[in-house]
Amino acid sequence: MFEFPQFSKHSVKNDVLSGLTVALALVPEAVAFAFVAGVDPMVGLYAAFIVGLVTSIFGGRPGMISGATGAMAVVMVSLVATHGVQYLFAAIMLAGLFQISAGIFKLGKFIRIVPHPVMIGFVNGLAIVIFLAQLGQFKAPDLSGALTWLPQDQMMLMLGLVALTMAIIHFYQRSRQQYPLLLSRLSL
């Protein structure tokens, strides 16, 4: 479990670059999931830092995800709403103990029992819940303090930015499939 890896100049450079990439990607993700969970964004940033620190100390595995997830953020919404932020730390620690226990007892092999349609349904349900949580970004308080939809000009700007982002993601993926060699040379 505690093996010290052998480092070379090449691996150190790759590790530093991958660490910076993950750190830069984790900041907006942690803030977004903090909004979904209904907690202060600083709580999400602190949590992301601690998760990364613990993973780096105890060692991760290739392909292991160590960060905020939509599934945990959605569950935390009801926890924070009913009990407050005070119970969030205890719930996360308990979830971590469950994960460590599952690893010690090698229970990961039982994920094969879960049917594929169940996994797809879970992910689709999670997408719907995250979408509904994002609708609050299209509302602003009026003079009385009640949330109403944005004015038409601001709403059109917001919808245009959303459409532009979706188009970039869609066409970038398509261009990577059609021109992989060209894009790999451009990204060097």
Rank of each mutant, 00 (worst) to 15 (best):
M64G: 14
K13V: 13
L150I: 00
G59T: 02
L26R: 04
I169M: 06
F98D: 06
G136H: 05
M155S: 01
S11A: 06
V12K: 07
S175L: 13
N124G: 09
F89Q: 11
A140T: 02
E3S: 14
Q134L: 06
G125W: 09
S11I: 00
A163L: 14
Y179M: 05
G44L: 06
A48F: 12
V74T: 10
M72L: 12
T148P: 00
A68W: 15
K109S: 12
G52Q: 11
M155C: 01
V22K: 10
V77W: 13
L79A: 14
V80A: 08
A47I: 03
S175Q: 11
P5A: 10
A68T: 00
G84N: 11
G59R: 12
V129R: 09
V16L: 15
G52M: 08
I130S: 10
V51I: 15
G96K: 11
P41V: 03
A90D: 06
L132D: 10
A30D: 07
S18K: 12
P62G: 11
V16W: 14
P117Y: 12
I169A: 12
A25Y: 14
T55A: 15
T55Q: 15
F7S: 08
I168K: 13
I50K: 06
G103S: 08
F35K: 13
M1K: 12
Q173H: 11
G96T: 05
A127Q: 09
D40E: 09
L88Q: 08
G59I: 03
F138K: 02
W149C: 04
I113P: 06
E29P: 01
M64P: 00
Y87L: 15
F138I: 00
V22L: 15
N14S: 15
A23M: 07
P151C: 00
M76F: 15
F4R: 14
A23E: 01
M93G: 06
Q152Y: 07
V77H: 12
A23K: 04
I50W: 13
Q6M: 10
R112Q: 11
F171I: 02
F35C: 01
Q99F: 10
F98S: 13
Y172W: 07
A102E: 01
V51P: 09
L20E: 07
G103Y: 05
T165G: 15
P62Q: 08
A48V: 05
G96E: 06
L164I: 08
P151Q: 03
Q86F: 10
V118M: 15
I130F: 12
S11W: 05
Q173K: 14
D40T: 01
G60V: 02
F89E: 11
L150C: 05
F33G: 00
I111A: 15
Q134N: 13
T148L: 04
L45T: 02
M166G: 04
Q86E: 15
S101C: 11
A146D: 09
S184V: 01
P180D: 04
G84P: 04
A133Y: 09
A34H: 03
A81I: 01
S184H: 15
L183I: 09
S187Y: 04
L88D: 07
R176P: 00
S101K: 03
M119I: 04
V75I: 04
V85M: 14
M72D: 00
A167G: 14
F89I: 12
V43R: 10
K106M: 03
V129C: 03
Y46M: 14
M1G: 14
H10T: 09
A140C: 00
M158I: 00
T165M: 10
P5R: 12
Q152W: 08
G125M: 13
P28Q: 07
